Simulated scan of single mutants.
Amino acid sequence: MSKRKENFMAATRLMALHIVRGRSLSSSLKERMDYTENDLKTEEKKYISTYGCDIETADEEFLLSHQQYHNSVRDIRKKEIIAYQIRQSFKPGEITPDKANEIGYELAMRFTKGKYAFTVCTHTDKAHIHNHIIFNAISIDGTKKFRDFYFSGIALRRISDILCLENGLSVIKPAPYKERKSQGRYSRKGHFTDKRLEFLKDIEAKLHEGKGKGYVTWARRFNAKQMAKTVLFLQDHKISSYEELRKITDERSGRLQELKDSMKEKEALLSENKKRQQAIIDYSKNRSVFESYKESGYSKKFYAEHESELLLYKAAEEVYKSVPKGQKLNMQKLRDEYGHILEEKKKEFLEYVQLNKDMHEYMIAKKNLEMLYQMDADKNEKEGRDKRTRNSHSENVL
């Protein structure tokens, strides 16, 4: 067996199936399905599952949806895409055909969201078990066509990785662009040699341990789907250890607190600035009322008639008195200062929102790892206690 196959892990590929040149839509679709449903490859159709169609008439049911779509929406075009094929391969010896077919079905269901009929044929004729999933390009109700979106292959791989991790299977790390360019779409060379991947491999190993005797207890305390997402999160963010993850979360927590404190200070500055601007307005607007009040000899009757204006003037006067000596209140200067502080606060708020959003994912990953490693520590502690008990018992016997 070649080195390439020894390193083979769960991998996916999405392909569009077109009308074969010189053939009809019907014959093009039947030829592709006949290959995937081959009795020798599927052990006489033992490992086949379907959704929205029957395996014996799948090609005809696909065609009915095509006819409905082309009759009501648009005619058949040149190089018409009739269906899409997903290939999903697994590491040799790691999975049974039944389980592979089950995972393939779930992959197709999550990717198509149950809107397109599909067949899942698991082939066992190679060293590595693999799925051929064909889903119709036309929706089950015949009203729309599947649109292959940008990075659809990456989205497909991510769903497959999550499913594999949920089921304790190996996943493959996408090669750097430079390697892919020279060695093909997916390089499998040395994926588990660097520190970061050894860390991820250690996490996967601990998840596999959970599949033993204590799996039921583990499953109640731990969400396998969430852990699968955590492993991919660590991989995507190139985090190589728990210590590195904790350092990142601590730094981000510190930065979030700095931003909160800074925004709070700026809010106070904005409030004081606004207060001074209002003081200028109130002082100017009610100065004449106060002068009239003073000329009246501080008449109680005049005060009663102009109480609100005089109170505003008095409050404005107190603000003027609070300004440090040598400084004067200037409306234009205050407005410019207000705009500058507000702009800085907005920038900090945007940074805070983004950091807080990312922080949620980092904290989930940190919490999941802490739970995982705590379980490992509890296990080691229990084994240590059992060993000490056995040794003590042996000494008593002697």
Rank of each mutant, 00 (worst) to 15 (best):
K260L: 12
M363R: 08
M331L: 15
G339L: 15
N223F: 08
H123K: 08
I95T: 00
Y35T: 11
K345I: 04
D194T: 03
P92V: 11
V323K: 02
K173Q: 14
Q183H: 13
N136G: 09
D261N: 15
F233A: 11
L207R: 05
K382F: 09
H191F: 04
T217N: 09
C53E: 03
F111D: 01
V73H: 04
E383H: 11
G339E: 08
R390M: 12
L64E: 07
S170D: 11
F8C: 02
E272K: 04
I248K: 14
I364G: 02
I103Y: 00
A268G: 02
I138N: 00
N330F: 04
R158F: 12
A108E: 02
K274V: 14
I159N: 00
S240F: 07
F8K: 05
L342G: 04
Q327N: 07
Y320T: 00
A228M: 02
E267G: 15
K225D: 07
N131P: 08
E272C: 01
T217W: 01
Y313R: 10
L350I: 02
F8Q: 03
N356F: 14
Y298L: 15
L310Q: 00
M363F: 11
Y186E: 10
I159R: 00
L259E: 02
K379D: 06
S288I: 10
A228H: 03
A175K: 01
E267V: 04
L200D: 02
T143A: 10
K346Y: 11
S2W: 07
P324E: 03
Q277G: 04
L165E: 01
I86C: 11
S262E: 03
I81S: 03
H237Y: 13
F290K: 07
K45A: 15
L232M: 04
Y69G: 06
K301C: 03
G168N: 14
E37P: 00
D386Q: 13
K274I: 13
K91Y: 03
D194L: 04
M33R: 01
T57L: 14
P324R: 06
L334H: 02
R147W: 06
L207Y: 03
K178F: 09
G153V: 07
S139R: 09
L369M: 08
P176G: 04
R157L: 05
V171E: 00
L350H: 01
K126N: 04
Q374M: 05
C53N: 05
S292Y: 04
I203S: 01
A108R: 03
E258A: 12
S296D: 00
F149H: 06
D98F: 13
E31P: 00
H237L: 10
R255Y: 10
R276A: 14
S2C: 09
Q277Y: 01
E307L: 15
E317N: 11
G104Y: 00
R385G: 07
L372M: 09
Q374T: 06
E43M: 09
R246V: 12
P174E: 07
L270G: 01
F349I: 02
K382W: 05
H18L: 06
E37A: 13
K113Q: 15
K264Y: 03
